[in-house]
C-alpha cells in the first residue's frame, strides 16, 4: 500500500516538527520536575512554567506523544500509507490531553470563584483554601498550547481519511 510520496514527505516533516517539539518540551518538563524535587526551581532563573512545566509525569506523557509522532516519520517519508497511524494516534492523544488539561483549568477556575465568593474566616473557608492565589496562567503549559500546532495535522488527517 503506498501513499503519494509528495504528501508523505510533507507529513513526515510535519510529524518530525511536532514530535521533536513534544519530546523536547516533555523532557525539559521532566528534568525541571526532577530538579524541583531536589529543591532547584527553574522559575527562579526566569524560565516560565508556560514553556517548561516542572512536573515529571506531565513531561513523560508529552515525551510519549512525541515518540509516537516520531515513529511515523520514516514510513511517511517512504510513502507507506499505514504510517498515517502514528500521526492520527499522536494527534488524538494530544487532543485528549489538551481536553483533560483544559478541564483541570476549568475546575480550578470554579474553585477560585468559590474562594472569592466565600468570606475569609467563614466556616466554609477551609474547604476552598486550595485555590488561594490561583491564577489561570499557572495551568498553561506546553501540553495546552502545543495542541494549536496539532490542529493542522488533525485537519489533514480527517481530510485524507474522508478522501480515501
Amino acid at each position: 500500500m503506498t501513499l503519494s510520496i509528495k504528501i508523505g514527505k510533507k507529513w513526515a516533516i510535519y510529524s518530525l516538527c511536532i514530535g521533536l517539539a513534544s519530546m523536547i518540551f516533555g523532557l525539559l518538563g521532566l528534568t525541571s520536575g526532577l530538579s524541583l524535587a531536589y529543591g532547584v526551581n527553574w522559575s527562579e532563573w526566569g524560565i516560565s512554567t508556560v514553556f517548561v512545566y516542572p512536573d515529571i509525569f506531565t513531561g513523560v506523557m508529552m515525551a510519549i506523544i512525541g515518540v509516537i509522532f516520531l515513529l511515523g516519520v520514516r514510513p511517511q517519508w517512504s510513502g507507506k500509507q499505514d504510517a498515517v497511524s502514528f500521526l492520527v494516534v499522536g494527534t488524538l492523544l494530544s487532543a485528549l490531553f489538551f481536553g483533560v488539561y483544559l478541564a483541570m483549568m476549568g475546575a480550578n477556575a470554579i474553585g477560585y470563584s468559590m474562594y472569592n465568593a466565600i468570606p475569609a474566616g467563614s466556616v466554609y473557608a477551609n474547604s476552598v483554601a486550595d485555590w488561594e492565589g490561583w491564577i489561570w496562567l499557572n495551568d498553561v503549559h506546553p501540553g495546552i498550547w502545543l495542541f494549536v500546532f496539532v490542529i493542522p495535522g488533525l485537519y489533514l488527517t480527517l481530510k485524507l481519511w474522508r478522501k480515501e
Binding site: I64, V67, I68, V89, L92, L93
Partner: peptide, 26 residues
C-alpha cells in the same frame, strides 16, 4: 489505523499508561 499504534509492541503499553494517567488527572 489506530491498532497500528495501540497494538504496537513498543508503544502500546506506554500509550495505555499515558491514557490511564490522563484518566486519573481528570
Amino acid at each position: 489505523l489506530l491498532d497500528k499504534v495501540f497494538l504496537n509492541k513498543y508503544v502500546g503499553i506506554p500509550a495505555f499508561f499515558a491514557l490511564l494517567w490522563a484518566v486519573f488527572q481528570f
